[in-house]
Design a protein around this nucleic acid. Structure first.
Length: 493
RNA sequence: GGGCCGGUAGCUCAGGGGUAGAGCAAAUGACUCUUAAUCAUUAGGUCGAGGGUUCGAAUCCCUCCCGGCUCACCA
């Protein structure tokens, strides 16, 4: 960044100089708070119960967010991770060093305070300053105290300013942590083992998405950032880790909008001996428990909608629902051109280079998904669309797969996993063929190493992938994924 | 990528052909219970960038950059 020399920064650099002249280290390391701001308030309650007016001397610290000078008395607000408290420095209670230092403090500085907690005549909990220590000198001005930081671009590019100025954003960071903590707790209580699988992979398989490419020098080979954790987690199931999950980042080289970031977090889990009905139950219980523990209720507000997470979720058979909404029965409409024709007549714009499965996906997302506001499972997808899912016993053209939708957003995707290695190879080969035929479309990739693993035998397994960012958006009522990802991807300036 | 909206002081925002504005923040001064402290004074600008129209452009036109919403794409 170019050195901006405006008056504010000049004045602060000048103060820095004076500090050095006085022998005060503006970046010391030896201050240890005994009480954060919340503990100060609790301490005050305690001593007031005992009929005392002033606590013992404590050490507290935080960022200065306001300075109100009243002549020989100065009020200073400090903000720490858990809250705010005001300091009162009066000429006759502070030591000589503090008297000199206090003139050199600015809004934005980190400061430590030493003194007793008491309550002012206006009833405000306050730390009486015996002494103040500068802990870190700030050279740049903070956003405005009253209106905060509103410029969305600055909020995303300099999230630390957003965190300082807008308490709701701190709350999102904390609540996101809570949600992931509850998610992990839920999985562990169910006996799942948390693992970490490769992010750098030789074949970006396990989903249909455009990968990021990179290169490893020593191995002299191209590598990709994973687009899914699926195939590695299944390898673990093959190896006998019967309940396994991973919470981690996936990377997809695709568009950015309020529901999509190029890197995003998912939780994928695989459970031996489960099928997709078991997984549906697990997902319902998982959402219920997390929301109950984080929000204390089954019902949450998301935008204009009140969402109810009491199980069971609505289950909609995809074929029936699609017939209702579009008149198309996918079992009787296996021809690409016929499907394309029907969709065009319905007013759905369709590109030329589109596979049957691409068309079907589009049809579903236009005709069904927007209406799925309350938590809903759409079940039993066409086999063609789901190369990793196991066919249904009744109808081999259908697979045991479901997707979960909330507020019109896809939040999870799950199947009874395909564990027949010969079928799986055929499905992959079909995907490869489609990728050749329709180069513009993403298909899943054949992962030979995974096929070999399957050939060694994977137990019957049910698996699911859940989009964590979207889950956090829903629970915290945020309209954009950029509000729940602390550092969203933006163009460079 | 298309459409719409936006980018003016560190921050929040006015101003939409005729000398660049306010509040907060900053500086100086007054004030020993303030909390959006108050009062007085001062300073602070490449009006996103570049081109054009005009006697004169923050303002009108064109191109570009950045962002938001939206549509398309993308599971």
């Amino acid at each position: 960044m170019e050195p901006e020399i405006n008056a504010i920064i000049k004045s602060r650099l000048k103060k820095l100089e004076i500090l050095y002249e006085k022998g005060i280290d503006p970046y010391p390391t030896d201050f240890k708070p005994t009480h954060n701001t919340k503990a100060c308030l609790e301490l005050l309650c305690d001593i007031e119960k005992k009929g005392l007016e002033k606590s013992e001397v404590i050490y507290s610290a935080g960022r200065i967010t306001a300075i109100r000078k009243m002549g020989k008395a100065i009020f200073i607000d400090i903000l720490d991770e858990v809250g705010k408290i005001q300091l009162l420095a009066r000429n006759n209670t502070i030591d000589e060093e503090t008297n000199e230092l206090i003139e050199l403090l600015d809004i934005g500085d980190w400061a430590g305070v030493i003194g007793p907690v008491f309550r002012t005549r206006r009833n405000e909990p306050t730390i009486q300053v015996n002494s103040i220590k500068l802990l870190s000198k700030s050279l740049k001005p903070l956003p405005e105290k009253w209106h905060g930081l509103k410029n969305v671009e600055t909020r995303y590019r300099q999230r630390y300013l957003d965190l300082i100025a807008n308490t709701e954003i701190r709350e999102i960071v904390k609540q996101r942590d809570n949600i992931i903590f509850e998610l992990r707790k839920f999985m562990k209580e169910k006996g799942f083992t948390e693992v970490e699988t490769p992010i750098l992979v030789p074949i970006p398989a396990g989903a249909m998405a455009n990968p990021f490419k990179t290169y490893h020098n020593a191995l002299d080979r191209e590598l990709f950032l994973r687009i899914a954790t699926e195939l590695y987690l299944k390898r673990m199931v093959v190896g006998g880790i019967e309940r396994v999950f991973e919470i981690g980042r996936l990377f997809r080289n695709e568009g950015i909008d309020s529901n999509h970031n190029p890197e995003f977090t998912t939780m994928e889990s695989y459970e031996a001996y489960a099928d997709y009905n078991d997984v549906m139950e697990m997902v319902e219980n998982l959402f219920e428990q997390i929301i109950l523990n984080v929000k204390g209720t089954h019902e949450i507000q998301y935008g204009d909608n009140k969402l109810n997470f009491k199980p069971p979720w609505t289950r909609l058979n995809l074929r029936e629902t699609l017939k209702d909404k579009s008149g198309i029965d996918f079992n009787l409409c296996g021809d690409v051109d016929e499907l394309k024709d029907k969709m065009s007549k319905m007013g759905i714009e369709v590109r030329n280079q589109l596979t049957w499965s691409g068309l079907m996906d589009k049809l579903i997302s236009e005709k069904i998904e927007p209406d799925l506001i309350q938590p809903t499972f759409l079940t039993d997808y066409p086999r063609e669309m789901s190369p990793l899912a196991k066919p249904s016993k009744e109808n081999p053209n259908i697979v045991e797969r479901f997707e979960g939708f909330i507020a019109g957003m896809e939040v999870c995707n799950a199947f009874t996993e395909l564990n027949d290695p010969i079928d799986q190879r055929a499905r992959f080969e079909n995907q490869e063929k489609m990728r050749e035929e329709f180069p513009e479309e993403e298909g899943d990739r054949l992962d030979e190493d995974f096929l070999i693993a399957l050939e060694h035998g994977m137990p019957p397994t049910g698996g699911v992938g859940i989009g964590i960012d979207r889950m956090v958006m829903l629970i915290l009522n945020q309209p954009s994924i950029r509000e729940v990802i602390t550092f969203p991807q933006l163009r460079s300036l």
